[in-house]
Amino acid sequence: MKRIWKAMAVFAMAASGAAWCQSYPAKPIRIVVPFAVGGTGDTLTRTVGDEMSRDLGQPIVIDNKPGAGGLVGTELVAAAPADGYMMLLVSPAHVIIPALHAGKKTYDPIKGFEPITVFANTHQVIVAHPSVPVNTTQELIDYAKKNPGKLNYGSAGTGSATHLNMALFLSMAGIDIVHVPYKGSTPARQDVLAGQVQLAMDGLLPLQPLIKDGRLKAIGITSTKRAQSNPEIPTLGETVKGYASDTWYALLAPGGTPKEIVARLHASAVKALASPAVRDRLSKLGAEPVGNTPDELRELLLREQAIWMKVVKDSGAKAD
């Protein structure tokens, strides 16, 4: 009889859980964006989130929680209930942050979360103030070699993707350009516009109008291939063979979120990314929609973790 009662209890719990998943979502969903309002990740999330909310029948609230390079928002979601009502937008910084905090317990970027899908691939680009006498990647390399340590560049902060993408480029190109870390990409962008720093590494999305107006010069894109929105800008890898660093934005849920909920969120995100309106909007933002599977996203996270742990170690970068 004990075995029968135990089996009945397990069945009841499973049935209850299945019914709960079928009623999901029953209230607004929160997506934490660990970056400032107006940045690439924030804009992408709002675009896709609006379309997902129509499919899910519940509002999706975007909650910006910047701080500590993304650590603040990420730890918030890592500790959240695994009920599908709080998710996290991530970029390569997700696997970089724990490497920067070596010796300090933060979060496990793989085991601590359930992957849903990659929203889109985007691009980072090196830009120069018009006064800098270079226009191409090769000219930048030649000038830096003739003037070691005389050029400087701004990034979103020590250990940020903009910093490490540039550090990887400098290492592979064999040149010395001084790093000037900022607390976010916006102040770095403002200072290169003002000529306070000569170069900057930043996302293509906020740089597009500045490049178009001639207020900044685009030197090269970090990605594997040229941006569909700006095919005139060469990749850095066209000059520095082997260099490639793709920037992506993906959606994760807290570890332990039921598979049925992950599947529902994945289906909704993929449907949103297939929408002509969303695809058109992302294209204009210089982003290329993806919508891969949770397993494919997990494999991406594992590959990126291995790559960036080595870059962090080689660069000597540590959290501020």
Rank of each mutant, 00 (worst) to 15 (best):
T117D: 03
Q138P: 00
E260C: 02
S223H: 12
P98T: 03
G69R: 08
V132R: 03
M309C: 02
L251K: 05
P109R: 07
P92M: 12
A80Q: 05
Q190I: 15
G237D: 10
L210S: 07
P231T: 10
K104H: 13
L193H: 05
T257R: 07
V311T: 10
V240E: 05
Y85T: 01
A161C: 09
D50P: 02
A218W: 09
P34Y: 05
A14P: 00
G17F: 12
D295E: 15
A26K: 15
S185A: 15
V134T: 11
A227Y: 01
S16Q: 14
F113C: 01
G157M: 08
V127M: 06
F35S: 14
A99M: 04
V10T: 12
G157N: 07
G84H: 05
N165V: 13
N152C: 11
F11Q: 09
M87I: 04
V10I: 15
P130S: 07
P209F: 03
V32T: 09
V278R: 04
D108T: 03
V262L: 11
A80F: 10
A120N: 08
A317R: 14
L56S: 05
H94A: 00
G149K: 12
K217N: 10
G49A: 15
V278P: 03
D50L: 14
G57F: 07
G49P: 02
G316K: 09
Y85R: 05
D314F: 00
D314H: 01
G70V: 00
K6D: 06
A68G: 01
L100G: 08
T247N: 14
G291R: 03
L199S: 04
L252W: 11
G242S: 06
C21M: 11
T122K: 00
T117F: 06
G70Y: 05
L44Y: 02
D63E: 15
H101S: 08
A319D: 09
K146G: 07
I221F: 06
P258D: 12
R54W: 06
Q124R: 13
A102Y: 09
P187C: 08
